[in-house]
Design a protein around this nucleic acid. Structure first.
Lengths: 192, 192
DNA sequence: CGGCTAAGGCTATTAGCCTTAGCTTTATGG
DNA sequence: CCATAAAGCTAAGGCTAATAGCCTTAGCCG
């Protein structure tokens, strides 16, 4: 029939639109195919690994998007200002695209592409940490801590884990203050 | 045929054994039924909501288990000692049962049972924070921060996100030191 | 002791999904 | 203008969840 001219990237586009609309549970090759205006098996011409690979590509794309946002937020800032902006950008992305963010851990194994994207994301954090005199292995430990905090808060808030009356936004503010304060006196640093 | 004498709890037991063995991806009513020595539809007699409810029950069970471990770790300790023990227990549980922990976010919506279990888990953290003079709303914000850090690190480490040469155990040590230090000068506290 | 009821099994069926195989058509390059 | 590779299709197989309806067991009550 008429050729749609699909590309792997476009398949991921459709998949993301579907996830945004109906959640990761609804991600099925059949629905993606319908959105793309194509029969289900045709998707294999572009995503040969089937559903598993599609999930992988989604994780890569989302990680890249997130890394972009963080990089944008960091540019032109340094120190506490930069960390604050990065953490706010992280949470803003997760809040704006909750299903997309929740789809992240659905990826199979961390492959090369995903590792590359994640490395870039971590790179942004490491770069920001230079403002605290952190470098080398300690910068990695600190960056992992930052990422754990950002990811933990994002996934818990998306999952609806914060049900008490207290405003999660306030929690996030506290969390940022706590983090910036801690980074100034990072444990492994001799300069205390 | 001969009655197996199944109960909802036993169904969850089988499901958890399956998850531990083969990961959350492999959780299917058919496999659980096989393990239980029963035909698939028979499971509906015990878990009427089908796969969705089973996942819900699993999340509740895992959250309860985790809360137990944290409570055990906290007993008889206070202050930095208690926080350290709780965070280590958290990570130890996640490391010991990675698939089980990864299955947590597969639960549908936070229902009453899950909320109850999570409330107990948070209660343990809040109790530990009393050692820092934290109470009321600020204790909640601090507890959420602690939980975010613990959950973020656990899920990232399970997902294999820490691929660089640096030892994640060292990261965890730094993370704990950072957290205890920060709790002593919690942002919202007047006593600075 | 007889019989009733409810619970816990079962088989059969439907609907939906992923995936592979193989055919057909379109677009493109020589 | 034709050959070929890419991109679509239909058909089919095998898996899953879920529902419907039947059968048997266990236990209780008269």
């Amino acid at each position: 029939m008429p050729r749609v001219g699909l590309t792997p990237d476009q398949v991921v586009d459709h998949a993301l639109a579907l996830i945004d609309d109906q959640g990761g549970e609804a991600l099925t090759l059949a629905s993606v195919a319908t959105r793309a205006g194509v029969a289900t098996p045709s998707l294999y011409k572009h995503v040969s690994g089937g559903l598993g690979e599609l999930r992988r590509l989604i994780a890569v794309r989302v990680t890249e998007e997130l890394a972009d946002r963080l990089a944008d937020a960091a540019v032109g800032r340094s120190g506490d200002d930069a960390v604050t902006a990065v953490l706010r950008a992280y949470q803003a992305y997760a809040t704006a695209h909750p299903h997309r963010y929740a789809a992240l851990p659905q990826a199979p194994q961390p492959d090369d592409d995903l590792t590359r994207a994640a490395t870039r994301l971590v790179g942004v954090i490491v770069a920001v940490l230079r403002g605290y005199g952190l470098d080398g292995p300690e910068a990695i430990h600190a960056a992992r801590t930052v990422r754990s905090l950002a990811h933990g808060f994002a996934s818990l808030s998306i999952a609806g884990a914060f049900q008490l009356a207290e405003d999660p936004t306030t929690t996030h503010d506290r969390l940022i203050t706590t983090l910036t304060t801690a980074l100034h006196t990072w444990p492994g640093t001799a300069t205390a």
